[in-house]
């Protein structure tokens, strides 16, 4: 009997896992952004002394995991599972990192939804009594993503208004059966929504329906309203996606205009830093969650936050073949004091 399930898609934890340590590492551009004070490490050089951008990304993820474990006052031996993913083909950043960490590893591909996807799975493992401590992590790198999904860096192409800027960074969260919060109390894993958007440079527009679907399902399953949250934040819908979510949710009778924002909007000053529709990438929600949101929850600025990373599950091949972009969004409820 699945006693922890409520409604159609949501899980309510009986023993809510606590976040006991986080870390966030970002590149120089992110370090120049509005959230600069919240990150643990800001790199001066986005290759971090490595020979390739891919190696730099793996190093960021590895250091983020080690730092999160250190911030939780634990050692790697105390962690039972590593759950991580990234954007690169065959999730190499995560697997090379897992090689270094040396503990049992679940590799995920959820594109930019990886942070909350890994937290959903990690939280279920803890609440289910399968582990005492797990670490969830993800990373992305502007330059490794550009060369895989778009153009060489020095090519003089113009970016569209709707395009977003992949965040260079890595974030990690240690979840534990014992801790003082913030706790993950509910999760609403999302389903794929695809409205046939084929433009891979408008990911916010492609992913917005998935975000709306997950939000509606979350409110329906739990009986909460947007006003029950101090902050509702999506992963990387950017300016266009956020506008669509507010608009569509209003039509469904939910007012998100007051307390809803997007990590892709928070992390960059879109005008000053010329990031068009905002930030994107796995690290976008990862560093905003593990930096800004976690630290502000610890301070008590927010007591109840809904975080929903969003993913565009296309590939360079599917884009060339004219296939549409499947979107997904996984929501987690973070609370300082479980109700």
């Amino acid at each position: 009997m699945a006693v922890k399930r409520i409604g159609k898609q949501t899980i309510k934890f009986h023993n809510p896992p606590s976040i006991i340590g986080t870390s966030s590492i970002v590149g120089p551009k992110e370090g120049d952004g509005p959230l600069r004070g919240y990150f643990d490490i800001v790199l001066e050089d986005d290759t971090w002394g490595q020979k390739s951008f891919e190696k730099a990304e793996a190093k960021m993820q590895e250091e983020a995991i080690k730092l999160a474990i250190k911030n939780a006052n634990l050692s790697v031996d105390n962690i039972q599972f590593l759950i991580s993913g990234d954007l690169l083909n065959q999730i190499i950043s995560s697997s090379y990192t897992a090689r270094q960490i040396g503990i049992p590893y679940f590799g995920l591909y959820g594109a930019c939804s990886t942070m909350t996807e890994s937290l959903c799975i990690g939280a279920m493992i803890i609440d289910g009594g399968f582990a005492d401590n797990v670490v969830c992590a993800t990373s992305s790198h502007f330059s490794s993503a550009e060369r895989q999904f778009r153009f060489p860096l020095e090519y003089g192409a113009q970016r569209k208004f709707s395009s977003q800027w992949t965040v260079t960074g890595a974030g990690a969260t240690v979840l534990s059966a014992n801790g003082n919060g913030p706790y993950i109390t509910y999760i609403t894993p999302g389903r794929i929504k695809d409205y046939g958007v084929t433009d891979a440079s408008n990911m916010g527009g492609a992913m917005a329906p998935a975000a709306i679907d997950t939000l509606l399902q979350h409110f329906e399953d739990t009986g909460f309203t947007p006003q029950d949250y101090d902050l509702i934040v999506s992963g990387d819908l950017g300016l266009i996606g956020r506008r669509i979510v507010i608009d569509m949710m209003k039509k469904k009778g939910y007012d998100l205009s007051e307390n809803y924002t997007d990590c892709g909007i928070k992390i960059f000053d879109v005008v000053e830093q010329d990031t068009h529709a905002g930030g994107s990438g796995c690290a976008c929600s990862a560093v905003v969650l593990n930096g800004y949101i976690y630290k502000e929850m610890k301070k008590g600025t927010f007591n109840r936050v809904l975080v929903m990373s969003t993913g565009a599950l296309h590939s360079p091949i599917s884009t060339l073949q004219g296939e549409s972009v499947p979107g997904i969004a996984h929501a987690i409820t973070l609370e300082n004091l479980p109700r």
């Binding site: 208004f161 408008n202 329906p209 509606l216 506008r243």
Partner: peptide, 18 residues
């Protein structure tokens, strides 16, 4: 959202892009 067809959504999306 549910009652929107793919085409309707794409038209709607087009209007949202500057």
């Amino acid at each position: 959202m549910d009652n929107m067809t793919n085409k309707e959504y794409q038209e709607y999306l087009k209007r949202k892009i500057p």
